[in-house]
Nucleic acid binder design. Structure first.
Lengths: 348, 348
DNA sequence: AAAAAAATTGTGTGCGTACACATTTTTGTT
DNA sequence: AACAAAAATGTGTACGCACACAATTTTTTT
């Protein structure tokens, strides 16, 4: 049913119905109620094509995510956003990518300033640098620019939506997978690999989850040992080798996508130790295929990116409601199902 | 860039450009080439809104899938289609559901006839009844109606696209999960639960995959035993109990969503046996939560449905190319990541 | 009660495309 | 060369909505 038909039904003109629909005022209470009743009755749904054509408007979405080398984790959410853009660009969505250096707060602040200067209609934000991200969120709030947080949650911000995963539960799941094939009273390493001093909340939560599972859900007495590897140290690889080849290590958990570094070490040292890590990035493919990495826990980063932009389509273009909070599944990926997860990432 | 601008650039009228765009002929070779060159040069993209408005057309997609009780497997693809309809209905897509009785070839033939009578613009088809499904495909082909196959592949049909999973690999994956926690030389049951005589290709392929893995990929000598339960037999439950409580059973694989029947038996009999099955349907939730079922392998049936309709949107409405064949990932679901897979199904 | 102001309602145009129909140009025939 | 037929090109309208502006009715002021 069109506006024209509604107007005829209510014995008014198109303009009046239009004013009611957009709440532009200048309509008497009586006719407004009459029209609202009819709209309700016929369940009026505007024609998206006509509306889109008449508005003839485009929306800019700024994307603020960490810079990356090819094959690294942060490439994937960007791929998802680009895939979404391919589908949704025709509806007038435009995307402006801004990459910051994860190891430089200054770089984040600069890019954040550029975001504000751009005056976008929406922002997609990876809050890797907690404190500064929060500051940006408040500024966006003040400017009335809606924003979506991807990857990990940030507190005290009124976002359009959050799309990410539950890091704590990710750690718990890793523990389950690792523990199931480690003998009673075995020794398990948790190896964190970092190259900066920033506090990484995701890493931290995963480790907490891992420990939680080993304490709560099993009746084995595991020996847990945390190892920190700092890649800024020139000898970090020797340290890693040393840690891996220590006696009686039954399993290793690497709570990040950098598990391939550990896999490489195990492979070179011909060590056969159960290994569980995070994130299906291309650098982890071959070690999964060869079985050096037993399980990788994925969190659909490309879907996160896709949904983030899709949400802006829904809210800006289609004027629909969007979910405030979406936790994506924690996928368990191993040699036998890897191939289909891979092809998923490469889809149109 | 609009048609109008293209026309001006080429020194012709709108109509001429239009004829070139739609290949309606009645354009001299010379001008046609000139216009094509310009279209290429400026990378002309039609305005979707204007096109949609001008066409003012709707498309009917018939969906032919098995009937179901609440909470059964075939409810889920339908949910996915309905979810897609909610998003895409505004673009003129309409869906007509037709449900057949899986155990009645006659019912399938009747519904198939209704599909043809409906003269839809597209068909989504679950080829559970192989032979008749193939026949329908040929008729659709003759009528020039594009169709999408979901769930399992069918041979020798030229479909618009196939969206489903690799059953063989699903069986292999199940074997991996089960075997990892079964002691050397253990005994493993493969329990097939059926309630009709139809040949179920999916079930068959999964079992083949399972056996393949146990033969190729491990160096244990497992004892495999196949058990067939026919639910039309009034005493099928006793048979099931008997099979489960046999001596030395270390693990059970149920290559279908009916794993909850086995879980129920194990639970009632207080048997602690590793159990792996298929499909995250609501009837399997509680047994996963309580750990009676160790792993369920999912194949995203709701996504299958969603993508099937989305593909018709892409091809009928947006006139885009679609992938011929999509294999969805084989998800490994266990107690610790169940919650997020559940919420995924319930999304908008 | 007339004029002015305010409130309400109506009308017209443009958005870019598809398609039917009208007009012009070219080609073929005598 | 004159005409008809065919080919090529141009024009106009509809699609449903948003928004600017015009017209009308009601209320307030003098």
């Amino acid at each position: 049913m069109t506006i024209k038909e509604i107007a005829k039904k209510a014995n008014v003109s198109l303009g009046t119905v239009d004013r009611v629909l957009h709440d532009r005022g200048k309509v008497s209470r009586k006719t407004k109620e009459k029209i609202l009743a009819i709209l309700e009755e016929v369940n009026y749904q505007p024609n998206v094509y006509a509306r889109g054509l008449a508005l003839n408007k485009s929306f800019i979405v700024a994307v603020l995510v960490p810079d990356f080398e090819e094959g690294e984790y942060w490439e994937v959410p960007s791929l998802g956003i680009k895939k979404a853009l391919k589908n949704l660009g025709q509806f007038g969505l435009k995307v402006h990518f801004l990459y910051f250096d994860q190891n430089s707060v200054k770089s984040f602040i600069e890019r954040a300033a550029e975001v504000l200067e751009l005056k976008p209609d929406g922002v997609i934000l990876a809050p890797v640098i907690d404190y500064e991200a929060t500051k940006l969120c408040f500024k966006l709030k003040a400017e009335d620019i809606p924003f979506t947080i991807i990857d990990s949650k940030i507190r005290g911000c009124d976002h359009l939506s959050f799309i990410g995963q539950d890091s704590f539960q990710s750690g718990r799941l890793a523990a389950k997978l690792l523990v199931s094939s480690v003998s009673k009273n075995g020794k398990v390493l948790i190896i964190s690999i970092k190259n900066n001093e920033n506090h990484n909340r995701t890493l931290h939560r995963r480790i907490e989850g891992f420990k939680d599972f080993t304490l709560q859900d099993i009746n084995q007495d595991l020996i847990l040992e945390e190892v920190n590897i700092d890649q800024r140290n020139t000898e970090w690889q020797s340290y890693l080798e040393e840690a891996c080849s220590a006696k009686d290590v039954d399993g290793i958990y690497v709570p990040s996508s950098k598990v391939h570094f550990v896999a490489e070490t195990l492979y070179n040292q011909k060590l056969s130790i159960k290994l569980v890590g995070n994130d299906l990035i291309s650098k982890n493919y071959k070690y999964l295929e060869s079985g050096v990495i037993d399980y990788v826990i994925g969190q659909r980063p490309e879907t996160q990116g896709y949904m983030a932009l899709e949400n802006f389509y829904k809210s800006l273009v289609a004027k629909q409601e969007v979910k405030k909070s979406i936790f994506l599944p924690l996928d368990i990926i191993t040699k036998e199902n890897l191939m289909y997860y891979k092809s998923q990432i490469e889809l149109p």
